[in-house]
Design a protein around this nucleic acid. Structure first.
Length: 482
RNA sequence: GGUCCCAUCGUCUAGUGGUUAGGACACCGGCCUUUCACGUCGGCAGCAGGGGUUCAAGUCCCCUUGGGAUCACCA
Protein backbone atom coordinates (compact mmCIF):
# COMPACT_ATOMS: atom_id res chain seq x y z
CA UNK A 1 0.00 0.00 0.00
CA UNK A 2 1.33 3.36 -1.00
CA UNK A 3 1.65 6.12 1.50
CA UNK A 4 -0.86 8.90 1.22
CA UNK A 5 0.55 12.33 0.69
CA UNK A 6 -0.40 14.98 3.16
CA UNK A 7 -2.89 16.60 0.89
CA UNK A 8 -5.07 13.61 0.15
CA UNK A 9 -4.74 12.48 3.73
CA UNK A 10 -6.08 15.79 4.86
CA UNK A 11 -8.96 15.57 2.42
CA UNK A 12 -9.91 12.07 3.42
CA UNK A 13 -9.82 12.87 7.09
CA UNK A 14 -12.23 15.72 6.69
CA UNK A 15 -14.71 13.51 4.79
CA UNK A 16 -14.66 14.77 1.28
CA UNK A 17 -17.93 15.96 -0.25
CA UNK A 18 -18.13 16.23 -4.02
CA UNK A 19 -20.79 17.13 -6.48
CA UNK A 20 -21.58 16.91 -10.14
CA UNK A 21 -23.70 19.88 -11.17
CA UNK A 22 -24.89 19.73 -14.77
CA UNK A 23 -27.33 22.22 -16.19
CA UNK A 24 -30.34 20.54 -17.80
CA UNK A 25 -30.07 22.23 -21.15
CA UNK A 26 -29.02 19.13 -23.07
CA UNK A 27 -27.97 15.50 -22.71
CA UNK A 28 -25.04 14.15 -20.74
CA UNK A 29 -22.11 14.60 -23.08
CA UNK A 30 -18.66 13.06 -23.07
CA UNK A 31 -17.04 15.90 -21.18
CA UNK A 32 -19.70 16.03 -18.50
CA UNK A 33 -19.58 12.28 -18.10
CA UNK A 34 -15.85 12.41 -17.46
CA UNK A 35 -16.26 15.17 -14.90
CA UNK A 36 -18.96 13.13 -13.20
CA UNK A 37 -16.72 10.07 -13.29
CA UNK A 38 -13.79 11.87 -11.67
CA UNK A 39 -16.07 13.13 -8.91
CA UNK A 40 -17.55 9.69 -8.42
CA UNK A 41 -14.17 7.98 -8.34
CA UNK A 42 -12.70 10.36 -5.79
CA UNK A 43 -15.76 10.08 -3.57
CA UNK A 44 -15.59 6.29 -3.70
CA UNK A 45 -11.85 6.21 -3.16
CA UNK A 46 -11.89 8.48 -0.15
CA UNK A 47 -15.12 7.22 1.32
CA UNK A 48 -16.71 10.60 0.75
CA UNK A 49 -20.08 11.72 -0.50
CA UNK A 50 -21.06 12.26 -4.11
CA UNK A 51 -23.92 14.66 -4.68
CA UNK A 52 -25.91 15.28 -7.83
CA UNK A 53 -27.23 18.77 -8.26
CA UNK A 54 -29.20 20.05 -11.19
CA UNK A 55 -28.34 23.65 -12.05
CA UNK A 56 -31.64 24.85 -13.39
CA UNK A 57 -31.67 28.52 -12.44
CA UNK A 58 -32.10 29.37 -16.08
CA UNK A 59 -35.76 28.47 -16.11
CA UNK A 60 -36.16 29.28 -19.78
CA UNK A 61 -33.52 26.87 -21.03
CA UNK A 62 -33.89 24.05 -18.53
CA UNK A 63 -36.07 21.09 -19.42
CA UNK A 64 -37.27 17.93 -17.76
CA UNK A 65 -36.27 16.03 -20.88
CA UNK A 66 -32.69 17.08 -20.31
CA UNK A 67 -32.85 16.12 -16.64
CA UNK A 68 -34.05 12.67 -17.63
CA UNK A 69 -31.37 12.35 -20.28
CA UNK A 70 -28.65 13.23 -17.79
CA UNK A 71 -29.99 10.79 -15.21
CA UNK A 72 -30.21 8.10 -17.86
CA UNK A 73 -26.62 8.72 -18.89
CA UNK A 74 -25.38 8.56 -15.31
CA UNK A 75 -27.29 5.36 -14.74
CA UNK A 76 -25.92 3.74 -17.88
CA UNK A 77 -22.38 4.50 -16.77
CA UNK A 78 -23.14 3.24 -13.30
CA UNK A 79 -22.34 6.53 -11.62
CA UNK A 80 -24.63 6.49 -8.64
CA UNK A 81 -24.90 9.38 -6.21
CA UNK A 82 -25.27 9.51 -2.46
CA UNK A 83 -27.38 12.65 -2.19
CA UNK A 84 -29.76 14.38 -4.55
CA UNK A 85 -30.62 15.06 -7.20
CA UNK A 86 -31.11 18.53 -5.79
CA UNK A 87 -32.64 21.23 -7.91
CA UNK A 88 -31.48 24.78 -7.60
CA UNK A 89 -34.94 25.97 -8.52
CA UNK A 90 -36.02 24.63 -5.12
CA UNK A 91 -33.59 26.91 -3.32
CA UNK A 92 -34.68 30.34 -4.47
CA UNK A 93 -35.60 31.52 -0.95
CA UNK A 94 -32.09 30.70 0.26
CA UNK A 95 -30.47 32.65 -2.56
CA UNK A 96 -32.76 35.59 -1.88
CA UNK A 97 -31.78 35.53 1.76
CA UNK A 98 -28.07 35.48 0.97
CA UNK A 99 -28.45 38.34 -1.47
CA UNK A 100 -30.16 40.37 1.24
CA UNK A 101 -27.36 39.47 3.62
CA UNK A 102 -24.73 40.84 1.27
CA UNK A 103 -26.85 43.91 0.61
CA UNK A 104 -27.25 44.58 4.33
CA UNK A 105 -23.54 44.17 4.90
CA UNK A 106 -22.73 46.60 2.12
CA UNK A 107 -21.07 43.85 0.08
CA UNK A 108 -23.56 44.17 -2.75
CA UNK A 109 -25.53 47.00 -4.30
CA UNK A 110 -28.42 47.74 -6.59
CA UNK A 111 -27.58 48.68 -10.13
CA UNK A 112 -30.07 50.54 -12.29
CA UNK A 113 -28.15 50.47 -15.53
CA UNK A 114 -30.19 48.95 -18.31
CA UNK A 115 -28.99 45.97 -20.26
CA UNK A 116 -29.00 48.09 -23.41
CA UNK A 117 -26.85 50.82 -21.87
CA UNK A 118 -24.43 48.20 -20.59
CA UNK A 119 -24.22 46.57 -23.97
CA UNK A 120 -23.48 49.91 -25.61
CA UNK A 121 -20.72 50.68 -23.12
CA UNK A 122 -19.24 47.24 -23.59
CA UNK A 123 -19.11 47.65 -27.33
CA UNK A 124 -17.60 51.10 -27.05
CA UNK A 125 -14.94 49.84 -24.67
CA UNK A 126 -14.14 46.95 -26.93
CA UNK A 127 -13.90 49.22 -29.94
CA UNK A 128 -11.49 51.59 -28.24
CA UNK A 129 -9.38 48.67 -27.12
CA UNK A 130 -10.45 48.90 -23.50
CA UNK A 131 -11.76 46.24 -21.20
CA UNK A 132 -15.44 45.40 -21.45
CA UNK A 133 -15.96 45.37 -17.70
CA UNK A 134 -18.66 47.11 -15.72
CA UNK A 135 -17.66 50.72 -15.09
CA UNK A 136 -19.12 50.89 -11.58
CA UNK A 137 -21.69 53.58 -12.33
CA UNK A 138 -24.07 52.46 -9.60
CA UNK A 139 -21.45 51.26 -7.15
CA UNK A 140 -21.57 54.38 -5.01
CA UNK A 141 -24.98 55.72 -5.93
CA UNK A 142 -26.55 57.88 -3.22
CA UNK A 143 -30.04 58.66 -4.50
CA UNK A 144 -31.75 55.37 -5.27
CA UNK A 145 -34.72 55.56 -7.64
CA UNK A 146 -36.85 52.91 -5.97
CA UNK A 147 -39.35 52.63 -8.77
CA UNK A 148 -36.87 51.64 -11.46
CA UNK A 149 -35.94 48.04 -12.19
CA UNK A 150 -32.56 46.97 -10.89
CA UNK A 151 -30.13 44.10 -10.67
CA UNK A 152 -27.95 43.39 -7.68
CA UNK A 153 -24.22 43.43 -8.11
CA UNK A 154 -21.49 42.04 -5.93
CA UNK A 155 -19.09 44.71 -4.75
CA UNK A 156 -15.76 43.20 -5.68
CA UNK A 157 -12.46 44.49 -4.34
CA UNK A 158 -10.77 47.01 -6.63
CA UNK A 159 -7.24 45.88 -5.99
CA UNK A 160 -5.30 43.00 -4.54
CA UNK A 161 -4.83 39.48 -5.84
CA UNK A 162 -7.05 36.43 -5.61
CA UNK A 163 -5.19 33.14 -5.58
CA UNK A 164 -6.35 29.57 -5.38
CA UNK A 165 -4.45 26.31 -5.51
CA UNK A 166 -5.93 24.10 -8.18
CA UNK A 167 -5.50 20.40 -7.45
CA UNK A 168 -4.79 19.75 -11.12
CA UNK A 169 -3.24 22.94 -12.44
CA UNK A 170 -1.45 24.25 -9.39
CA UNK A 171 -1.52 27.83 -8.17
CA UNK A 172 -3.60 30.22 -10.26
CA UNK A 173 -3.80 33.92 -9.50
CA UNK A 174 -5.81 36.86 -10.78
CA UNK A 175 -5.46 40.55 -10.20
CA UNK A 176 -8.70 41.76 -8.68
CA UNK A 177 -8.70 44.79 -10.93
CA UNK A 178 -9.44 42.42 -13.80
CA UNK A 179 -12.64 41.36 -12.12
CA UNK A 180 -15.74 43.50 -12.24
CA UNK A 181 -18.86 43.70 -10.11
CA UNK A 182 -20.79 40.72 -11.30
CA UNK A 183 -24.55 40.55 -11.22
CA UNK A 184 -25.81 38.16 -8.57
CA UNK A 185 -29.51 38.83 -8.98
CA UNK A 186 -31.34 39.63 -12.17
CA UNK A 187 -34.01 42.23 -12.74
CA UNK A 188 -36.64 39.54 -12.37
CA UNK A 189 -35.31 38.63 -8.95
CA UNK A 190 -33.70 35.32 -9.94
CA UNK A 191 -30.11 34.69 -8.91
CA UNK A 192 -27.29 34.12 -11.39
CA UNK A 193 -25.00 31.16 -11.78
CA UNK A 194 -21.82 32.33 -10.09
CA UNK A 195 -23.70 33.31 -6.99
CA UNK A 196 -25.91 30.26 -6.81
CA UNK A 197 -23.02 27.83 -7.19
CA UNK A 198 -21.24 29.40 -4.28
CA UNK A 199 -24.30 29.48 -2.05
CA UNK A 200 -25.12 25.86 -2.86
CA UNK A 201 -21.59 24.52 -2.56
CA UNK A 202 -21.27 26.32 0.75
CA UNK A 203 -24.61 25.19 2.12
CA UNK A 204 -24.06 21.62 0.99
CA UNK A 205 -20.65 21.57 2.59
CA UNK A 206 -18.85 20.77 -0.64
CA UNK A 207 -15.16 20.39 0.16
CA UNK A 208 -13.80 19.83 -3.32
CA UNK A 209 -15.11 21.17 -6.59
CA UNK A 210 -14.15 19.10 -9.62
CA UNK A 211 -15.43 20.71 -12.79
CA UNK A 212 -14.52 21.61 -16.35
CA UNK A 213 -11.61 23.77 -17.31
CA UNK A 214 -13.97 26.37 -18.69
CA UNK A 215 -14.73 27.47 -15.14
CA UNK A 216 -11.27 28.63 -14.11
CA UNK A 217 -12.05 32.19 -15.00
CA UNK A 218 -15.13 32.10 -12.78
CA UNK A 219 -13.21 30.77 -9.84
CA UNK A 220 -11.67 33.99 -8.51
CA UNK A 221 -15.09 35.65 -8.43
CA UNK A 222 -16.46 32.68 -6.61
CA UNK A 223 -13.61 32.69 -4.12
CA UNK A 224 -14.42 36.32 -3.40
CA UNK A 225 -18.05 35.42 -2.94
CA UNK A 226 -17.23 32.64 -0.47
CA UNK A 227 -15.22 35.13 1.51
CA UNK A 228 -17.99 37.71 1.44
CA UNK A 229 -20.45 35.10 2.60
CA UNK A 230 -18.14 34.04 5.38
CA UNK A 231 -17.98 30.50 4.07
CA UNK A 232 -14.88 28.31 3.81
CA UNK A 233 -13.45 28.18 0.30
CA UNK A 234 -13.43 24.63 -1.12
CA UNK A 235 -10.57 23.09 -3.03
CA UNK A 236 -10.80 23.29 -6.78
CA UNK A 237 -9.78 20.84 -9.47
CA UNK A 238 -10.33 21.95 -13.04
CA UNK A 239 -10.26 19.10 -15.51
CA UNK A 240 -9.09 19.90 -19.03
CA UNK A 241 -11.46 20.01 -21.96
CA UNK A 242 -11.99 17.20 -24.43
CA UNK A 243 -11.33 18.24 -28.00
CA UNK A 244 -12.37 16.85 -31.36
CA UNK A 245 -9.91 15.52 -33.90
CA UNK A 246 -9.52 19.05 -35.29
CA UNK A 247 -8.48 20.24 -31.83
CA UNK A 248 -11.65 22.23 -31.54
CA UNK A 249 -14.02 21.72 -28.69
CA UNK A 250 -15.99 18.50 -29.00
CA UNK A 251 -19.33 19.06 -30.63
CA UNK A 252 -21.96 17.45 -32.80
CA UNK A 253 -19.69 17.77 -35.81
CA UNK A 254 -17.41 15.19 -34.28
CA UNK A 255 -20.13 12.57 -34.16
CA UNK A 256 -22.20 11.52 -31.23
CA UNK A 257 -21.47 13.48 -28.10
CA UNK A 258 -24.24 12.14 -25.90
CA UNK A 259 -23.12 9.13 -23.92
CA UNK A 260 -26.46 7.49 -24.62
CA UNK A 261 -25.76 7.77 -28.33
CA UNK A 262 -22.68 5.66 -27.73
CA UNK A 263 -24.78 3.07 -25.96
CA UNK A 264 -27.02 2.99 -29.01
CA UNK A 265 -23.96 2.52 -31.20
CA UNK A 266 -23.23 -0.66 -29.31
CA UNK A 267 -20.67 0.54 -26.79
CA UNK A 268 -20.39 -1.05 -23.38
CA UNK A 269 -20.44 1.29 -20.38
CA UNK A 270 -17.26 -0.21 -18.95
CA UNK A 271 -15.47 0.62 -22.21
CA UNK A 272 -16.70 4.19 -22.02
CA UNK A 273 -15.62 4.51 -18.39
CA UNK A 274 -12.21 3.04 -19.18
CA UNK A 275 -11.75 5.31 -22.17
CA UNK A 276 -12.88 8.44 -20.39
CA UNK A 277 -10.66 7.93 -17.40
CA UNK A 278 -7.59 7.30 -19.55
CA UNK A 279 -8.25 10.50 -21.42
CA UNK A 280 -6.29 12.75 -19.11
CA UNK A 281 -5.40 10.29 -16.41
CA UNK A 282 -3.02 7.37 -16.33
CA UNK A 283 -1.35 4.92 -14.03
CA UNK A 284 1.99 3.85 -15.47
CA UNK A 285 1.63 1.83 -18.64
CA UNK A 286 -1.71 0.30 -17.79
CA UNK A 287 -4.59 0.63 -20.23
CA UNK A 288 -7.32 -1.62 -18.89
CA UNK A 289 -9.00 -0.67 -15.66
CA UNK A 290 -12.04 -2.10 -14.00
CA UNK A 291 -14.10 0.26 -11.89
CA UNK A 292 -12.78 -1.41 -8.77
CA UNK A 293 -9.19 -0.84 -9.87
CA UNK A 294 -9.99 2.75 -10.65
CA UNK A 295 -11.49 3.36 -7.25
CA UNK A 296 -8.27 2.01 -5.81
CA UNK A 297 -5.83 3.79 -8.08
CA UNK A 298 -7.42 7.06 -9.04
CA UNK A 299 -6.03 10.32 -7.73
CA UNK A 300 -7.08 13.74 -8.88
CA UNK A 301 -3.49 14.95 -8.70
CA UNK A 302 -2.55 12.48 -11.46
CA UNK A 303 -4.98 14.06 -13.92
CA UNK A 304 -3.06 15.81 -16.69
CA UNK A 305 -3.17 19.55 -17.23
CA UNK A 306 -3.64 19.68 -20.97
CA UNK A 307 -6.68 19.19 -23.13
CA UNK A 308 -7.09 15.82 -24.83
CA UNK A 309 -8.35 14.81 -28.23
CA UNK A 310 -11.23 12.36 -28.29
CA UNK A 311 -10.12 9.25 -30.18
CA UNK A 312 -12.99 7.01 -31.32
CA UNK A 313 -10.62 4.26 -32.51
CA UNK A 314 -9.23 3.71 -29.08
CA UNK A 315 -12.70 3.71 -27.58
CA UNK A 316 -13.61 1.04 -30.10
CA UNK A 317 -10.55 -0.99 -29.22
CA UNK A 318 -11.48 -0.90 -25.56
CA UNK A 319 -15.02 -1.85 -26.45
CA UNK A 320 -13.77 -4.83 -28.45
CA UNK A 321 -11.69 -5.81 -25.47
CA UNK A 322 -14.64 -5.73 -23.09
CA UNK A 323 -16.81 -7.63 -25.54
CA UNK A 324 -14.16 -10.33 -25.83
CA UNK A 325 -13.78 -10.54 -22.07
CA UNK A 326 -17.47 -10.08 -21.27
CA UNK A 327 -19.90 -12.56 -19.79
CA UNK A 328 -21.85 -14.14 -22.68
CA UNK A 329 -25.07 -14.23 -20.69
CA UNK A 330 -24.93 -10.51 -20.04
CA UNK A 331 -23.91 -9.72 -23.60
CA UNK A 332 -26.85 -11.75 -24.85
CA UNK A 333 -29.19 -9.57 -22.79
CA UNK A 334 -27.53 -6.41 -24.07
CA UNK A 335 -27.80 -7.70 -27.62
CA UNK A 336 -31.58 -8.01 -27.53
CA UNK A 337 -32.47 -4.42 -28.38
CA UNK A 338 -30.05 -4.47 -31.30
CA UNK A 339 -31.62 -7.65 -32.60
CA UNK A 340 -35.03 -6.08 -32.18
CA UNK A 341 -33.91 -3.27 -34.47
CA UNK A 342 -33.18 -5.97 -37.02
CA UNK A 343 -36.58 -7.60 -36.80
CA UNK A 344 -35.87 -10.21 -34.15
CA UNK A 345 -38.26 -8.88 -31.58
CA UNK A 346 -38.43 -11.77 -29.15
CA UNK A 347 -35.51 -13.62 -27.70
CA UNK A 348 -35.12 -16.57 -30.09
CA UNK A 349 -35.22 -20.11 -28.71
CA UNK A 350 -33.04 -21.67 -31.37
CA UNK A 351 -30.15 -21.45 -31.70
CA UNK A 352 -29.36 -20.46 -28.16
CA UNK A 353 -28.42 -16.79 -28.07
CA UNK A 354 -25.68 -17.26 -25.51
CA UNK A 355 -23.96 -19.76 -27.78
CA UNK A 356 -24.37 -17.42 -30.70
CA UNK A 357 -22.78 -14.62 -28.69
CA UNK A 358 -19.82 -16.83 -27.84
CA UNK A 359 -19.02 -17.30 -31.52
CA UNK A 360 -19.17 -13.57 -32.11
CA UNK A 361 -17.32 -12.11 -29.14
CA UNK A 362 -13.90 -12.21 -30.74
CA UNK A 363 -15.08 -10.68 -33.96
CA UNK A 364 -17.26 -7.81 -32.81
CA UNK A 365 -16.09 -4.33 -31.98
CA UNK A 366 -19.57 -3.20 -31.01
CA UNK A 367 -22.86 -4.79 -30.02
CA UNK A 368 -24.22 -3.43 -33.24
CA UNK A 369 -21.66 -5.41 -35.20
CA UNK A 370 -22.47 -8.43 -33.11
CA UNK A 371 -26.14 -8.11 -33.94
CA UNK A 372 -25.33 -7.95 -37.63
CA UNK A 373 -23.14 -10.99 -37.28
CA UNK A 374 -25.82 -12.91 -35.39
CA UNK A 375 -28.53 -12.40 -37.97
CA UNK A 376 -27.73 -15.32 -40.24
CA UNK A 377 -28.24 -17.79 -37.41
CA UNK A 378 -31.89 -16.85 -37.22
CA UNK A 379 -32.82 -16.58 -40.87
CA UNK A 380 -34.87 -19.50 -42.11
CA UNK A 381 -34.24 -18.60 -45.72
CA UNK A 382 -30.75 -17.24 -46.35
CA UNK A 383 -30.02 -14.95 -49.21
CA UNK A 384 -26.71 -15.94 -50.69
CA UNK A 385 -24.18 -13.29 -51.48
CA UNK A 386 -24.14 -13.58 -55.27
CA UNK A 387 -20.60 -12.44 -55.69
CA UNK A 388 -19.45 -15.01 -53.17
CA UNK A 389 -21.39 -17.73 -54.93
CA UNK A 390 -19.89 -16.90 -58.29
CA UNK A 391 -16.42 -16.86 -56.92
CA UNK A 392 -16.56 -19.89 -54.64
CA UNK A 393 -19.22 -22.29 -55.85
CA UNK A 394 -17.89 -24.72 -58.44
CA UNK A 395 -19.78 -27.36 -60.41
CA UNK A 396 -18.56 -30.02 -58.02
CA UNK A 397 -19.60 -28.09 -54.89
CA UNK A 398 -23.12 -29.50 -54.77
CA UNK A 399 -21.80 -33.01 -54.64
CA UNK A 400 -19.38 -32.16 -51.87
CA UNK A 401 -22.10 -30.56 -49.81
CA UNK A 402 -24.34 -33.56 -50.31
CA UNK A 403 -21.65 -35.93 -49.08
CA UNK A 404 -20.93 -33.71 -46.11
CA UNK A 405 -24.56 -33.49 -45.14
CA UNK A 406 -24.96 -37.21 -45.40
CA UNK A 407 -21.92 -37.86 -43.22
CA UNK A 408 -22.94 -35.24 -40.67
CA UNK A 409 -26.47 -36.57 -40.38
CA UNK A 410 -25.22 -39.88 -39.12
CA UNK A 411 -22.88 -38.44 -36.51
CA UNK A 412 -23.89 -39.45 -32.99
CA UNK A 413 -22.30 -36.45 -31.36
CA UNK A 414 -22.40 -32.94 -32.71
CA UNK A 415 -19.80 -31.02 -30.83
CA UNK A 416 -16.85 -29.15 -32.26
CA UNK A 417 -14.50 -32.14 -32.21
CA UNK A 418 -16.83 -34.67 -33.78
CA UNK A 419 -17.90 -32.20 -36.44
CA UNK A 420 -14.28 -31.57 -37.29
CA UNK A 421 -13.47 -35.24 -37.53
CA UNK A 422 -16.47 -35.95 -39.76
CA UNK A 423 -15.54 -32.97 -41.89
CA UNK A 424 -11.98 -34.16 -42.29
CA UNK A 425 -13.16 -37.67 -43.01
CA UNK A 426 -15.36 -36.42 -45.83
CA UNK A 427 -12.51 -34.41 -47.29
CA UNK A 428 -10.27 -37.46 -47.19
CA UNK A 429 -12.91 -39.66 -48.83
CA UNK A 430 -13.45 -37.12 -51.57
CA UNK A 431 -9.75 -36.56 -51.94
CA UNK A 432 -10.09 -32.81 -51.57
CA UNK A 433 -8.61 -30.16 -49.37
CA UNK A 434 -10.39 -27.94 -46.92
CA UNK A 435 -10.11 -24.96 -49.22
CA UNK A 436 -12.07 -26.76 -51.94
CA UNK A 437 -15.16 -27.20 -49.84
CA UNK A 438 -14.90 -24.62 -47.03
CA UNK A 439 -16.12 -21.52 -48.84
CA UNK A 440 -19.18 -23.27 -50.26
CA UNK A 441 -20.06 -24.66 -46.85
CA UNK A 442 -19.74 -21.22 -45.34
CA UNK A 443 -22.07 -19.78 -47.94
CA UNK A 444 -24.54 -22.60 -47.33
CA UNK A 445 -24.51 -21.98 -43.60
CA UNK A 446 -24.22 -18.21 -43.37
CA UNK A 447 -25.02 -16.89 -46.82
CA UNK A 448 -21.68 -15.21 -47.25
CA UNK A 449 -17.93 -15.48 -46.92
CA UNK A 450 -17.59 -13.92 -43.51
CA UNK A 451 -18.66 -15.84 -40.44
CA UNK A 452 -17.30 -17.53 -37.36
CA UNK A 453 -15.51 -20.82 -37.80
CA UNK A 454 -17.57 -23.37 -39.74
CA UNK A 455 -17.33 -25.94 -36.96
CA UNK A 456 -18.53 -23.45 -34.41
CA UNK A 457 -21.40 -22.35 -36.58
CA UNK A 458 -22.47 -25.96 -37.16
CA UNK A 459 -22.30 -26.77 -33.50
CA UNK A 460 -24.39 -23.77 -32.56
CA UNK A 461 -26.88 -24.39 -35.36
CA UNK A 462 -27.27 -28.02 -34.38
CA UNK A 463 -27.27 -31.08 -36.55
CA UNK A 464 -30.72 -30.74 -37.96
CA UNK A 465 -30.45 -27.12 -39.01
CA UNK A 466 -26.92 -27.61 -40.32
CA UNK A 467 -28.02 -30.44 -42.58
CA UNK A 468 -31.10 -28.52 -43.64
CA UNK A 469 -28.97 -25.59 -44.75
CA UNK A 470 -26.50 -27.87 -46.45
CA UNK A 471 -29.23 -29.70 -48.34
CA UNK A 472 -30.94 -26.48 -49.27
CA UNK A 473 -27.69 -25.16 -50.68
CA UNK A 474 -27.06 -28.37 -52.55
CA UNK A 475 -30.36 -27.94 -54.30
CA UNK A 476 -29.93 -24.28 -55.00
CA UNK A 477 -26.38 -24.60 -56.26
CA UNK A 478 -27.40 -27.43 -58.52
CA UNK A 479 -30.30 -25.43 -59.88
CA UNK A 480 -28.10 -22.40 -60.43
CA UNK A 481 -25.57 -24.41 -62.40
CA UNK A 482 -28.32 -25.83 -64.54
C1' G B 1 -7.90 42.46 -28.00
C1' G B 2 -7.56 41.72 -22.15
C1' U B 3 -7.14 37.82 -18.63
C1' C B 4 -6.19 32.70 -17.42
C1' C B 5 -4.39 27.93 -18.79
C1' C B 6 -1.67 24.40 -21.73
C1' A B 7 2.64 22.19 -24.93
C1' U B 8 6.67 14.24 -25.34
C1' C B 9 5.21 9.87 -31.68
C1' G B 10 -0.99 11.34 -35.96
C1' U B 11 -3.85 10.35 -30.98
C1' C B 12 -3.91 8.97 -25.42
C1' U B 13 0.18 8.94 -22.34
C1' A B 14 4.98 7.17 -19.00
C1' G B 15 8.88 10.21 -17.69
C1' U B 16 9.98 14.55 -11.88
C1' G B 17 18.35 16.44 -13.96
C1' G B 18 22.15 11.40 -16.16
C1' U B 19 16.81 6.71 -20.28
C1' U B 20 19.14 3.37 -26.77
C1' A B 21 12.90 8.72 -24.52
C1' G B 22 8.84 3.43 -22.51
C1' G B 23 3.63 1.71 -23.30
C1' A B 24 -1.23 1.89 -25.85
C1' C B 25 -4.60 3.12 -30.19
C1' A B 26 -4.15 3.78 -35.37
C1' C B 27 -1.00 2.47 -39.52
C1' C B 28 2.58 -1.00 -42.21
C1' G B 29 4.82 -6.03 -42.62
C1' G B 30 5.64 -11.48 -40.90
C1' C B 31 3.40 -15.73 -38.43
C1' C B 32 -1.23 -18.38 -37.28
C1' U B 33 -5.65 -19.76 -40.37
C1' U B 34 -11.37 -23.03 -44.16
C1' U B 35 -13.39 -16.86 -44.38
C1' C B 36 -13.50 -12.50 -41.25
C1' A B 37 -11.53 -11.61 -36.95
C1' C B 38 -8.59 -12.85 -32.41
C1' G B 39 -3.75 -13.77 -31.07
C1' U B 40 1.44 -13.25 -31.76
C1' C B 41 6.17 -11.16 -33.58
C1' G B 42 8.40 -7.00 -35.82
C1' G B 43 8.36 -1.95 -37.99
C1' C B 44 7.19 3.38 -38.77
C1' A B 45 6.79 7.68 -35.71
C1' G B 46 7.80 12.28 -30.67
C1' C B 47 10.44 15.95 -26.46
C1' A B 48 7.36 23.17 -30.97
C1' G B 49 11.61 26.97 -31.46
C1' G B 50 15.29 30.05 -29.05
C1' G B 51 17.96 31.56 -24.90
C1' G B 52 19.72 30.61 -20.08
C1' U B 53 20.89 27.55 -15.07
C1' U B 54 23.93 22.99 -14.60
C1' C B 55 29.49 18.74 -15.27
C1' A B 56 24.65 17.07 -17.30
C1' A B 57 17.88 19.33 -19.41
C1' G B 58 12.16 16.09 -22.22
C1' U B 59 12.69 17.20 -16.98
C1' C B 60 14.31 23.90 -13.73
C1' C B 61 13.88 29.52 -15.38
C1' C B 62 12.83 33.26 -19.32
C1' C B 63 11.21 34.61 -24.21
C1' U B 64 8.90 33.33 -28.87
C1' U B 65 5.47 30.41 -31.39
C1' G B 66 1.27 27.48 -31.38
C1' G B 67 -3.28 25.76 -29.12
C1' G B 68 -7.38 26.21 -25.74
C1' A B 69 -10.68 28.68 -22.21
C1' U B 70 -13.13 32.99 -20.80
C1' C B 71 -14.61 38.11 -20.98
C1' A B 72 -23.73 37.84 -20.58
C1' C B 73 -29.37 40.08 -16.42
C1' C B 74 -26.16 31.32 -19.91
C1' A B 75 -24.55 27.71 -16.89
Amino acid sequence: MKKCNNQSLGVSMSKIRLRFAPSPTGYLHIGGARTALFNWLLAKKLGGTFILRIEDTDVARSTQVSVDAILQGMEWLGLDWDEGPFYQSDNFPLYKEKVQQLLAEGKAYKCYCTAEALEAKREAALKSGGKPKYDGTCRNLNDTPEDKPFVIRFKAPLDGVTVFNDLIKGSISFNNEELDDLIIQRTDGTPTYNFVVVVDDASMGITTVIRGDDHVNNTPRQVLLYQALGAPVPQFAHVPMILGSDKARLSKRHGATSVIAYRDMGLLPEAMINYLVRLGWSSGDEEIFSKEELVEKFTIEAVGKSAGVFNPEKLLWLNAHYIKAGDPERLAELLLPFLADRGITARPAQPDLVNVVKTLQERSKTMLEMADGALFYYKTELEYDQEAVQKNVKPESSGYLKSLSAALSTADKFDHESIESVFKGVCADLGIKMGQIGPAVRIALSGGTVSPSIYEVMEVLGKEETCRRLDLATARFTAAQG
